[in-house]
Amino acid sequence: MSEFDFHGLTASFEGQRVIGPLSLHVNKGEHVALVGKSGAGKSTLIKVIYERLQQEASLIPQGLGLVNALPVFHNVFIGQLDQHPTWYNTLTLLRPFSKDKKAVKALLDELSISEKLWIPAAALSGGQRQRVAIARALYRQAPILLADEPISALDGPMAHTAMQLLTGRFHTSIVALHDVDMALAYCDRIIGIQDGQIALDEPAANLVASDIASIY
């Protein structure tokens, strides 16, 4: 079953075409890894897909998009702002409800960062910030995940935990990764991007790391 089928995806930057035109068809349940050199257009492609999906996806951008002055709790809770009435959200900003606290804390526990629940995002390290952005994406519970290098600042075991969570909790995912081994381990389809075009599109099972090396 098709999750989405986009044609004529393009993007330009200062008059220079950086993406496409390309077509992308993704089935429900697929976990797609985008690989390619930096500057090949992976981030732009993710942004373009996010816009086409009219934001109906959890997005982890490279810049993470955390609100620095807010504590970790609110940075995660922000993923479900549409689920509650305005008064509820406003009150939560001042004094969170215990059921939300419990839910957010449980999620942060899985990413081993629940002790930072009330620390402002500005005071976190790069890897901790990345885990908060992952938690926010999970908390939102959208059907699709779009993530741009979500584990670049995480160490070995934590990177695996995060990838397990991301590919396990989302039905469909598209993740840009520079780590080819991680891509092969957690995704079932690999798309290689080169100069804004799809240079490779194969099931992960048919590939080994050296096959992907050609597009780098």
Binding site: Q54, Q55, E56, L59, P61, G63, L64, G65, L66, V67, L70, H74, I78, G79, Q80, L81, D82, Q83, H84, T86, N89, T90, L93, R136, R140, A142
Partner: peptide
């Protein structure tokens, strides 16, 4: 960036406050 990431359907007041 944070406001671009909000789920669609978020009302403008909470979006502004958060």
């Amino acid at each position: 960036e944070p406001s671009r990431l909000l789920p669609p359907g978020t009302r403008s007041i909470p979006a502004f406050l958060y």
